[in-house]
Amino acid sequence: MADITQLEAFVTQVRRDIVRQVHKVNSGHPGGSLGCAEFLVALYQHVLQRKEGFNMDGNQEDIFFLSNGHISPVFYSVLARSGYFPVEELNTFRLLNSRLQGHPTTHEGLPGIRIASGSLGQGISVAIGAAAAKKLNNDNHIVYALCGDGELQEGQNWEAIMYGSGNKVDNLIVAVDLNGQQIDGSTDTVLPLGDVKGKFEAFGWDVVTIEQGNDIQAILEGMESAKTKTGQGKPICVLLQTVMGNGVDFMMHTHAWHGKAPNDEQLASALAQNPETLGDY
C-alpha cells in the first residue's frame, strides 16, 4: 500500500522545484507542470515497476514517455527525486550546456529520458512503437505516456489512436491531462475538443476517468483500474481531470501561467504555500 501522506509531501517538494526552476531562468512552463505533479509522483513513486538505474531499452520494466514536453520542470523534478540524476542538477534547468534542456531530450544523455518531446503530438506513436517492441521481446511490462489535452489537436495523435485499437496494443496506458487550457485560452475557445471520452471510445479504446486528477488517492485507484484493463485487446486511455497551476493559488484555474515565470514576490508566495519537505536542491 502506498503511503498517501508521504506521496503528498513528495508532491509539495516537487511544486517547490517547479516554481524555483522556472523563476531562476525567468522562462518555462509552470502551469501544466503543477497540474501534473500528483500524477507523475504517483507514477514514479508507486505505479511504475522500475528497475534501478537507467537503461535506454527499458527491458523488463515499465517505461514512460512524456509527450507534452513543455512540462519538463515537473518531469525533471520527479526524475531527479526518483534517483535518475542528482537533484542539484535542477539548478541548471534551461541554462547553457545543461542536460536539462527547455524541452526533454535524449541528446544530452539525461538519464530517465527516452525520447525528445516538445513538438507536440508525437508521444503516443513512440509509445506504441515501444509497446510493440515489448511484445516482440516477450516483456509483459506496460508502456505509459502522458499528453496534454490541447495536444490532441495535432492530427498525428489520431493516426496513433486508430492504430492502437486496430492492432490491439493492450500493453499501453495513455493519460491525457484534461485541464481545459492551452496557450491562447481555454481549449473550448481555441479549438473545442468535444467529447474526448466518446472520441477515444469511438476509436476503440478503454477509457478510465480520474475526476480528481490532483488527488493522490484518486490517481492511484484510477491507475490501478487502468492496469487491470491491460492485456484485454484494447489500449487504455486515462482521462486525468486536473487544475492547471494546482497548489499555487494565483496560478490555478487560468491559462495565464501556461508558459510564464513568477517574479520574486510571486515565488515567495508560491513557496510559502508549499513548505519544504524533502529538502530544496
Binding site: 531499452d57 508521444g123 506513436s125 506504441i128 515501444a130 510493440a132
Partner: peptide
C-alpha cells in the same frame, strides 16, 4: 511487419519507439 496504413507520421514515431527495446 507493421502495416500502419496511410499514416506516415505515426509510422515514424512508432519506428522511433521500436528502437527502444533494441529493434
Amino acid at each position: 511487419f507493421f502495416q500502419v496504413g496511410i499514416a506516415e507520421a505515426n509510422m515514424m514515431g512508432m519506428a522511433a519507439g521500436l528502437t527502444i527495446g533494441g529493434k
